[in-house]
Structures are given as structure tokens and as C-alpha cells.
Design a protein around this nucleic acid. Structure first.
Lengths: 166, 166
DNA sequence: GAGCGATTGATGATGATTTCTCATAAAATG
DNA sequence: CATTTTATGAGAAATCATCATCAATCGCTC
């Protein structure tokens, strides 16, 4: 059974890792340093990471790891229910640790992603659902797109992602 | 205070067309049958359209129109503020008429899609954005997934408050 | 350890969207 | 109309994330 929602519920990384270990056992997968490193980094970050970001982190300790392995491992994580793929509109898939869901605020200029949670909004969602024929909300997706302070201030200036574009 | 019901705001297409005409004048663009047809179809459509969908509609009357022209014209529409590009994660850009945005409530069982709009939620979004470093919200995406009354079954009693979050 | 099958990484393929090219055609201007 | 400017369309080309390939490597079992 899924635990009821508590606002501050730190994810038990060890528990998730356990699930991974079981999955590996069940599927008779080999344990490799790369896979372990990728899973480790992914579970630790607990933040929506793109393939690139994850690869970058992994390469700090395992510089030889390639894209393919990250893709493959992330697929495994999705398959065993530890990761969820999300799209934020920049064409790059991002992966979220199960149970880590928040709502998001995305800067379309620099790619900054903030998380938020607001009980008032959640309450209003319920109200709306009730109003519209007794809908029962199971999950939701709520994303605000716009410009972060930096992106607004310096028009085209100091946004990391802008700078990276040619 | 809660809005008594979702206000359905019909867009004044003529007004939007006016904006387009002005833009054409200002930028000294030529008036061509293709452009007019594309703009016409775009403004007429109620929902977000992909390039393909738009092209398909336009071709009903102007079969020779090509992709390039649709892309080019849509760019103009974005430039003059009549269209907004949105990404729904399927890799295909969709374009929304300014002012046409609504949120969705989706029944994962029967596929029913309801639209809603709530000023209070929008206000809260602004509040959150302000709280998180002066973010400027340009657009948002808000989707509630769950079960409509029918899908829940009549007996279950309509208390959408428990058994929430996944 | 030896052997065998699973895994890796570099890179090329893939599939899809978007942009570019350029000869042709159509609009504006007078 | 004739000229000049701009727009079009068909396809080629550029992009880009993701996936497949395959020889080399590594993990696991015996």
C-alpha cells in the first residue's frame, strides 16, 4: 500500500536501493561498476535529471562511461519502477525518482527547474474535481513555464543555457 | 472566493485577425493566399495544433502548400504574439492561439477529457512564482488525472479526498 | 583462474522535426 | 504592363535525442 502523503517525507534511498538489488537478482543481471554508479547517482540526486546531467555526474568517478550505458541503465530503472520519465518541453527526457514528485517551475530561457508544492492549490484541485461531476483525482501534472529572475533581468545575457547555444 | 463556474471565454477571432493585419502592415509583408489560409485556419481552430494538423487543414483548400510555408507563417504568428509554441513531450511542437489556454481533467479509465479554468489557482501560481525568486510565469500546464464518476462506479461514494496521491 | 555469456563504449544508424536552398511564381509599385 | 521585391514549394540538408552494432571487456559460475 502506498503511504499517505506527508509533506516532508525524505526518500529512503536505502530502501530504493533494495528494490534495485532485488530487481537485479530477479532479472539475473550482472553487477557492474558502471551500473552501480549510475543507479547510485540517480537515486542520490533525487532530482529530475537529464541523461547528460546524470552522465556528467557519473563520469566524475567513472570517466569512461558512455551514453549508451546511461540510457540502458535508466531503462532498467524505469522498468523496475524506480524511475519515471518526464518531459519538460526542451526535447530532453528527464528522469525522476519514484516518490519524488513535485510540481515544477521551468525557465524556458536557461532551463532552470524549481520545485514547488502548495496545499492550497491541491485543495482547489479537489474542489474543481468535485465540481466537475465528482472526479477523483489520482495524480496530476502542474508545470509553470516562464522566466527566472536572471533571464528576465539580463535580456539574453547571463542565462547558462542561452550562453551554450550557438 | 471561488468562481461559481468555469467561465468559458470565446475568443474574438476578428480581433486577433486585426492584430495580424496590423502586423503585416507594419512589417510590410506581402499578402498571399497561403499565408492568409494558414492564419485563418490557425485562428479558427480551438485547440493546439501541430504543424501537420494545420497543414492538413490548409491543404483542403490549398493542396499545394508545403511544410516550409507553414513553418514560416507560424513563426510570424509567434513573432507577432498571436501564437504560442507548446511542447507536449511527443517531440512535436504545437501552437496555441493566444488566450485559448485551458487546463484539463483526464479520466484515465474512459478517456473523458474535461476542461477547466480557475482564477484562484492562477492567482496562486503567481504567488508561488513570486515566492520562488520572482519567476515570471508565461504559461502553464495543469492536468489532473483520475477517474470520472462513471469510472468510479456509483456505489463507491464520492469522497475524492482519501486514496489520493499515487 | 578458465570459460562463457552478459555488458560496455565508441560510433554510426535511425527517425523525426525543423530549417535551408534555389529556381519559380506571385505581389506590390508606379 | 514591366520591374523589383518578396514568397513559395519540393526536396535536400541540418539537428538532435535516442538506439543499434559489435569487437573488446568484464562478471559470474565452476
Amino acid at each position: 500500500m502506498v503511504a499517505p502523503r506527508d509533506d516532508f517525507r525524505p526518500i529512503d534511498t536505502a530502501q530504493l536501493k533494495e528494490r534495485w538489488v532485488e530487481y537485479v537478482k530477479e532479472k539475473k543481471l550482472n553487477t557492474t561498476a558502471q551500473r552501480e554508479a549510475i543507479v547510485e547517482q540517480f537515486l542520490r540526486a533525487a532530482d529530475h535529471m537529464s541523461i547528460d546531467e546524470l552522465l556528467a555526474r557519473v563520469r566524475k568517478r567513472h570517466p569512461r562511461v558512455g551514453y549508451a550505458t546511461v540510457y540502458r541503465t535508466l531503462k532498467l530503472l524505469v522498468d523496475c519502477g524506480l524511475a519515471v520519465e518526464r518531459q519538460f518541453g526542451d526535447g530532453q527526457a528527464r528522469y525522476e525518482v519514484v516518490g519524488e514528485h513535485h510540481d515544477h517551475l521551468i525557465c524556458t530561457s536557461c532551463g532552470l527547474i524549481l520545485e514547488f508544492e502548495d496545499d492550497e492549490i491541491e485543495a482547489l484541485q479537489e474542489k474543481i474535481a468535485a465540481r466537475l461531476g465528482g472526479f477523483k483525482v489520482l495524480r496530476h501534472r502542474h508545470e509553470l513555464y516562464g522566466l527566472c529572475a536572471k533571464a528576465q533581468g539580463v535580456a539574453g545575457g547571463s542565462c547558462p543555457r542561452d550562453a551554450m547555444r550557438k
